[in-house]
Write a protein that binds this DNA or RNA. Structure first.
Length: 442
DNA sequence: TCTTGTTTACGCCTGA
DNA sequence: TCAGGCGTAAACAAGA
C-alpha cells in the first residue's frame, strides 16, 4: 500500500513517448517506487532531493530526458492508501484563475481533455496514432485517472484559491468550490477536509478575514492572504512549508493578552517578559504599521503601532483616515502598497501569482521548484533551455494551454512585458488586478 | 437548521 | 530526540 504521501503522479506529454524524470521535492518524501504516472505509459523515475538542490539540473527537476522524449507537465498528486492515481488533467476544473493558469490539464470550456484531445495536434505535432493506440490509451486513461489526494496542504490550497481570485479574496464557500473543482479528491469526505479548511483559516495568521460590504451581502466573510504571507511557500513550491507564517504583531498581542490573563488569574504582575519579537520566521518582514480591516467593509485603516488584539482581529469603526478601498486590491485594503506589474497575458498574470521567485532563492535565481506553478508550466521551456530541445516538438500540456510567448520562465517574465494581447485559452480571463504576489514583497 | 468561524487537543511526519 | 508543520476531530458560538 502506498503511503498517503508517497504516491506521486505525473502526466506525460506525448503519448508515444517514454521519459525519465527526476523530480525534486522539498521535504516531501515521494519514494521513487511509488512515483507513478498515468494517462499514458510513461516510465519515470524520481529522485527525492530533500532541500538540497545540487544535482546540476538547473533546478528544473528534470533529469535525464532522452532525445525524442517529450517534456512533461508535472503536478504532484498523492495517492490515498490503496487508491488509484489521478492527474490534474482529469479534473475538469474550470476555475478561471488558477485552474487554467496551471496549465495542467484543465479543460478549456468546450475542449475535451480526454486522451483523444491530446492526440493529433499538440502544438502542431501530429501524433499519428492509430485507432487502436487511442483506444488502448483511453483504457489506460480511465484506469489510472482517478481521484487522489493532492500533495498540497490545506494552507496551500487556500492560498491557491485566494490567488486565483480576481479580487484576491474569497469566501469560505468559494474556497470549498475552488478546491473541489480543482481536486476531485476533495469531493469526498467534505465534512472532514472542510473542517480542516476552516481550522486553517482561523489558525494560521497568513489568512486575513475581510468583512463584507453592505452592497455584497452574504454569508461569511472574505478571506485573503496576509501581505507578508506570500513567501510562505519557498521557491514557489506549494508543498510543505519550511516555516509557518506568523504575524508577529498578532502573536505579540496574543502573548500580551495571555500574560494579562495570567496576571488576572494569579495576581502576579504581567508583562515582565517582553513580547515575542521580530526574530520570528524570516517570512515576516517587519510590518511598518498596523493594519486592520475596518468594520466598514472593504475599508482599511492604517494606524500607528501598538494595536490591540482586538484591533487586529475585530472590526472597528471607520477612522477618519480610512479610505474606501472597495475596488482596491485586498493588500491595498490592508494598507500595503501595491504596484502594477507588466503582464502580457492572463496566463502570465496567473503565473506570476504563483511565482515566488521574488523570494530569496537560495539555490539559483532561475530555480523553479517542480511543484511551483512556474515549473509546471514552463518545463517545456526549461527543457529547451537545458537540452536545446524544440519546444514545439516536445511540447507538453503546458504549451497546449497557452500559445502566448509570454509564458516563459520567470526571468523572462520579469522583464518588461510586451503589450501583446493575450492569446490562447486564457484570453478570456483577465485578472482584475495586475498586482501580484511578487509585487507585495517590498 | 445550517453555515461560518474559533479554539483546543491529539497524533503523525519531517527536519534539525 | 525534539520542535514544528500539518491533518483531523470535536466542541462551541454566532449569524443568516
Amino acid at each position: 500500500m502506498l503511503s498517503p504521501k508517497s504516491a506521486y503522479e505525473a502526466q506525460g506529454g506525448s503519448p508515444s513517448s517514454m521519459q525519465a524524470m527526476t523530480a525534486m521535492t522539498t521535504g516531501n518524501s515521494y519514494s521513487p517506487s511509488s512515483y507513478t504516472s498515468s494517462g499514458y505509459s510513461v516510465t519515470q523515475s524520481m529522485t527525492t532531493l530533500g532541500s538540497s538542490y545540487s544535482t546540476g539540473m538547473n533546478g528544473v527537476g528534470m533529469g535525464t530526458i532522452p532525445p525524442s522524449h517529450t517534456s512533461m507537465t508535472t503536478m504532484g498528486m498523492n495517492s490515498v492508501p490503496g487508491s488509484q492515481l489521478t492527474t490534474m488533467s482529469t479534473m475538469g476544473a474550470q476555475h478561471p484563475g488558477l485552474a487554467n493558469s496551471l496549465g495542467v490539464g484543465m479543460a478549456h470550456p468546450g475542449q475535451s481533455m480526454s486522451p483523444m484531445s491530446m492526440q493529433g495536434s499538440v502544438n502542431g505535432v501530429n501524433m499519428n496514432l492509430t485507432r487502436e493506440d487511442v483506444l488502448n490509451r483511453q483504457k489506460q486513461y480511465r484506469r489510472s485517472y482517478t481521484h487522489a489526494k493532492p500533495p498540497y496542504s490545506y494552507i496551500a490550497l487556500i492560498t491557491m484559491a485566494v490567488q486565483s481570485s480576481p479580487n484576491k479574496m474569497v469566501t469560505l464557500s468559494e474556497i470549498y468550490q475552488f478546491i473541489m473543482d480543482l481536486f476531485p479528491f476533495y469531493r469526498q469526505n467534505q465534512q472532514r477536509w472542510q473542517n480542516s479548511i476552516r481550522h486553517s483559516l482561523s489558525f494560521n495568521d497568513c489568512f486575513v478575514k475581510v468583512q463584507r460590504t453592505p452592497d455584497r451581502p452574504g454569508k461569511g466573510s472574505y478571506w485573503t492572504l496576509h501581505p507578508n504571507a506570500h513567501s510562505m511557500f519557498e521557491n514557489g513550491c506549494y508543498l510543505r512549508r519550511q516555516k509557518r507564517f506568523k504575524c508577529e504583531r498578532k502573536a505579540a498581542l496574543k502573548a500580551e493578552q495571555k500574560a494579562e490573563n495570567e496576571e488576572v488569574l494569579s495576581g502576579a504582575p504581567a508583562g515582565q517578559q517582553p513580547p515575542p519579537q521580530a526574530n520570528t520566521p524570516v517570512h515576516n518582514s517587519p510590518t511598518p504599521e498596523s493594519t486592520h480591516v475596518s468594520s466598514s467593509p472593504m475599508t482599511v485603516t492604517t494606524q500607528t503601532p501598538s494595536p490591540t488584539l482586538t484591533q487586529l482581529t475585530q472590526p472597528k469603526p471607520l477612522a477618519p483616515t480610512a479610505v474606501p478601498v472597495q475596488s482596491q486590491h485586498p493588500q491595498e485594503q490592508l494598507g500595503y502598497p501595491t504596484r502594477p506589474i507588466p503582464q502580457t497575458s492572463p496566463m502570465s498574470a496567473a503565473m506570476s501569482m504563483y511565482s515566488t521567485d521574488h523570494i530569496k532563492t537560495s539555490v539559483h535565481p532561475s530555480f523553479h521548484h517542480p511543484f511551483s506553478i512556474n515549473s509546471i508550466i514552463s518545463q517545456d521551456h526549461k527543457l529547451t533551455e537545458l537540452k536545446g530541445y524544440d519546444p514545439m516538438q516536445y511540447s507538453g500540456y503546458a504549451s497546449m494551454y497557452n500559445t502566448n510567448p509570454s509564458v516563459v520562465p520567470k526571468q523572462e517574465m520579469e522583464t518588461p512585458a510586451s503589450t501583446e494581447p493575450a492569446t490562447g485559452y486564457f484570453s478570456g480571463y483577465v485578472p482584475q488586478y495586475s498586482t501580484t504576489a511578487s509585487t507585495l514583497q517590498s
